[in-house]
Write a protein that binds this DNA or RNA. Sequence first.
DNA 1: TCCGGAATAT
DNA 2: GATATTCCGG
Length: 580
Amino acid sequence: MDATAFPYGLRVLVVDDDPTWLKILEKMLRKCSYEVTTCGLARVALEILRERRNKFDIVISDVNMPDMDGFKLLEHIGLEMDLPVIMMSIDGETSRVMKGVQHGACDYLLKPVRMKELRNIWQHVYRKKMHEVKEIEGHDNFDDAQMLRNACEGLEERGLFMRADSDTMRKRKDTDKDHADQDLSDGTTVKKARVVWSVDLHQKFVNAVNQIGFDKVGPKKILDLMNVPGLTRENVASHLQKYRLYLSRLQKQNEERIMGATRQDFSHKGSSDNLNLRSSFQEQPSNVANGYQHGPQKVQAQVNMLDSHSEDMKVVVPIQVPEKNITPVSDATDSQNVTSVSPLGGVLSFERMPVNQDRKPSETMILGCQSWSGNVPPKQFMQYPKHNHERCDLLGDYSCLPKPDLEHPIAPGHLYTTPPVMSMTCSMEGGVRDFSDVKPGLLGCMKSLSPALNCTVDSVSVQLSDSVVKSTDGDLKFSSVEGLPSIKDCYFDHTKNQATLLTSEEASIIGGTDLVCLPDDLPGYQLQGVSLENIGLNSIDLFQYNDAMILPGLQNNWYDDLEYSGETTDYQLIDGCLFA
DNA sequence: TCCGGAATAT
DNA sequence: GATATTCCGG
């Protein structure tokens, strides 16, 4: 049986003077997951429709009404509201059927009405809308056409049309014939509408989960909170099951990762505009790591995270960067962008003039600090079912970040929190050969960013030569009470003459907050190899992020709306961490 | 009755 | 294979 084309929530007005039929129809329609309003009189129906304009999608009316000829009603509805109307009667006299169709009925049903027929009525609504779109497009009125198309999309977003492409419609028609004798009006063999968890629907789900609290959620509670007509507890339970499975899978992957490799190899592209790297994040049920079991501390953290909305992420991120500390030192970065701390990651950027340029005897170094993207509107991610690829917005340089689930394990027992974003740019005109020059400035910059972060730069010693830039032991290492990261990996983009040093830190870096539990021993990552085999080294970007960074962004972004930058690689990058 | 996990269906 | 529904025991 094909149950691929079921909408729910279709708003149906049923008009029949026979209360028995009215009851039966109502029941059947509700089984189709429609919203049903019943009415025993044609005139009353007309009044209802006039009063509640745009509150109905379709009307089903009996032909024989005592107070008004059903055809008359049909005409009125057609003229005034332009709604699709289905006529029905107990007899199938051809002339009556013809009359109904001539008067504009989109369908004519014979009583007893079959479940199958009722289940298909949404197609009339859909077709009508599509027809209107086409008609207007034909008249070159693009604005109107777009409006209507949007209206159709609106219907889809409401979840009304789950899989309503023409193929499935055709498919349905075929199978309708095959199964015409099943699904009689008693509804005994009726299968439930197959709910497709649209973005909207999932958003509601997530909101409900967040509202309840992840440790207390149950399908029933979620269902109540979601308040979606037609949706059943089973639907929600199923979705919750999947959601949990997804999260635990994520956790497992991350646990495996943290056990294993320290060496990580990220691909990085477009690093030149990495300062425009934007984050996508949203409030998350942040308890993957501990399998939904929370200690008191963690529960609190979770609550905080769950309660926070993307716009309010600063609440969760205790580090505040005083702008006054940033502006004066920054010459090389756009201090206009300095707004507040975003819960993403950080960029350290060392810029150096091309070596083939004339070197001045007195080399200057400009150290800039930049906090990052606090004003970037949060985006949501979604992975829409493959058959319906939505645009995903992997903003700018998201690709330079590691795959969250694969490359960046979450420490078990640690909550995902969102790290501050810091960007530091050191411009070294001429031939700065020793990064130790950077050290004091860098440290100062770090401290100015946040006194809470007690960071030191143990050693910075990246030696540059005209042909090869190699790291020596120790290299760049930040050690911090709070777990400021040290360099973890390096990537060099030949095309851009840029090197990226990736650092990692524990999720709990957030700067002395109670929201997170700090691990007893923070693993200090050492720079594992900097080999910048390019003469024209322009900049070294140090990406500071923490393990939690991606996951809060992506994991809850699960399904959420994600715009797509258009590059498959980007999409795939996040795909792995989406709910799939 | 509700829930979660497993089995089953699409 | 992914995802939704249904079944069933706790």
